[in-house]
Each structure stands twice: as C-alpha cells, then as structure tokens.
C-alpha cells in the first residue's frame, strides 16, 4: 500500500484543529462553540491515530478511545450547563453572560 507521509496526516490534524479554534473564537452561539470544541478534540484524536500508525503501536488507538470517552462526558456536562444558561438568560448568545466584568 502506498504509504502516505506522516506529515500529511499531522498537517490535516493541525488544519482541523485551527479551524476548530477559529470557529470557537468567532461563533457567538454557545452550542456552535461546543461543536467547535468537539472538532478540536477530534482533530487531536486524529493526530494520535496518525502517530500510532507510524510506529505501528496500539497506543494511538487507545488514546483515541480515551479522548472519545472524555468528549462524551464533557458534552453531557456542557449541555447541562448550556441548559442552565438558557434558563437564566433566555438566549444562547454567549455575549449575554458578561456580568463578571469591570
């Protein structure tokens, strides 16, 4: 099989990560921020997989399962918090939660 150079995989993971980061910074809707964070997590997971296949070890795959588990837990907690924010502020605009300023 044609071996793709490992750099392409890492570059792909990096580009996905940065896309996710920009998306988190730019978006105002909290749910979209959460989705973007998911993208960042998956990008880092891709980087692990690529590294694991380069050295032909199962550690990469194991890390990815950890990351998936963590992401699931995080999303459930995050969604619960978002529900609370929506209950208080009646909007999903993150700029509305700016009381701790000054």
């Amino acid at each position: 099989m044609n071996k793709l150079p490992i750099e392409s995989g890492l570059i792909l993971a990096g580009i996905l990560f940065i896309l996710g980061l920009i998306s988190v910074m730019v978006r105002r809707n909290i749910i979209f921020m959460l989705i973007s964070v998911e993208i960042m997590l998956n990008a880092s997971g891709l980087a692990f997989i690529v590294a694991g296949s380069r050295w032909a070890q199962a550690d990469g795959q194991v890390m990815f399962i950890f990351i998936l588990t963590m992401a699931a837990a995080e999303v459930s907690v995050g969604l619960a918090l978002i529900l609370q924010i929506y209950h208080q502020l009646k909007t999903l605009d993150s700029d509305a939660a700016d009381k701790m300023n000054g």
């Binding site: 993150s94 700029d95 939660a97 700016d98």
Partner: peptide, 8 residues
C-alpha cells in the same frame, strides 16, 4: 477594562 466578562 480588559476584564470584559465576555467568553470570546
């Protein structure tokens, strides 16, 4: 002023 309270 740098403590704006905005998440972003």
């Amino acid at each position: 002023k740098t403590q704006s309270g905005l998440l972003r």
